[in-house]
């Protein structure tokens, strides 16, 4: 990056570190932190949306809605995350390629499964072999987002089902006695009031989502864990910047990153809780001081 860095073997001390920490490899490492943030930001609304849909569906009187809703939540919650993350991206990838095979080259010689091999013609590959590396990364990331979305959507769905049930029945009855339709009660009373009950569960889920992001590594994506291990491993003189085993420092850095991220989220959650508690007949809405003097 800097001109002093052209021959690292001549460097020592601060210069060496300055050059070392700005190699393209390190810049990629720093960039991969944004990948983690991007994953969280994309997955959170996706999971919340899926969870909301599942919760509403499972409350439905029609078994055609409630069964898929409940089935999805039970299934995705019951399968271990790691098994799910190993299975879904491979299955999705092969499903997409199989569909494209049916569309593009269904008369392929020998079919799709040949012995151990899963083969589609090169035009049906996803992404194409000729596609720029960035598309391969986007595709891998997309599969990861879908897997995370499905898993965390199920947990969110379960939380939301519970919080729908926690809204006091008197609120619903009051709505009905005012002549509101079911849909009006749902939109104006049930949904606005259930969030406060969902929040503790959802905030827990958010923390778990943050902590689950290293699973990207398991999916073969080059995330912060991959780069920390790669950069931290001991380097012989064949590398421009040889060093002993530094994994401890790199993983320590990840630890600090994750702690900072969860600490910031916790603070944001507390503020949100105060806001959503306003006007609710709960302990949180009156505050501890009032509670003590009131008794």
């Amino acid at each position: 990056m800097f001109t002093v860095c052209t021959d690292p073997s001549l460097l020592s001390g601060f210069d060496w570190f300055a050059c070392y920490l700005t190699t393209p490899k390190h810049l990629t490492f720093f960039g991969s932190f944004f990948l983690v943030l991007l994953l969280i930001v994309v997955v959170a609304p996706l999971a919340l949306g899926l969870g909301f849909a599942a919760a509403v569906a499972s409350r439905s009187g029609s078994p055609f809605l409630s069964l898929p809703g409940r089935g999805y939540v039970a299934l995705a919650r019951g399968v271990p995350d790691i098994v799910f993350f190993l299975f879904v991206p491979i299955a999705l990838d092969q499903a997409f390629e199989y569909l494209r095979y049916l569309m593009i080259c269904p008369d392929q010689l020998g079919g799709v499964w040949q012995g151990n091999d899963f083969i589609v013609c090169s035009a049906a590959k996803l992404p194409l072999s000729t596609a720029a590396p960035i598309w391969h990364s986007v595709y891998g990331f997309g599969l990861a987002v879908i897997s995370f979305g499905i898993v965390f959507g199920a947990f969110a769905g379960n939380v939301l089902v519970g919080s729908f049930k926690a809204v006091p029945i008197a609120q619903i009855q009051t709505g009905a006695s005012f002549g509101m339709t079911e849909s009006q009660i749902f939109h104006r009373i049930l949904v606005p009031q259930m969030w406060i009950f969902a929040l503790p569960g959802l905030s827990n889920l958010w923390q778990i989502l943050i902590k689950a992001t290293p699973l990207l590594f398991l999916l073969g994506l080059q995330d912060i864990v991959y780069w920390a291990r790669e950069l931290g491993s001991s380097k012989t003189g064949i590398y421009a910047y040889p060093h002993p085993d530094w994994r401890l420092y790199y993983f320590g850095f990840l630890l600090v990153f994750y702690l900072a991220l969860t600490a910031v989220s916790e603070a944001a959650y507390k503020r949100l809780m105060v806001r959503l508690s306003r006007g609710q007949g709960t302990i949180a809405s009156v505050g501890k001081a009032t509670l003590r003097s009131g008794f």
């Binding site: 090169s122 035009a123 996803l126 072999s129 598309w135 997309g142």
Partner: peptide, 16 residues
């Protein structure tokens, strides 16, 4: 994503 990836027309000569 599917359409974006399909824009490049495949050439059989790219080996990964």
């Amino acid at each position: 994503v599917l359409t974006a990836l399909s824009i490049n027309i495949a050439s059989a000569d790219t080996i990964r």
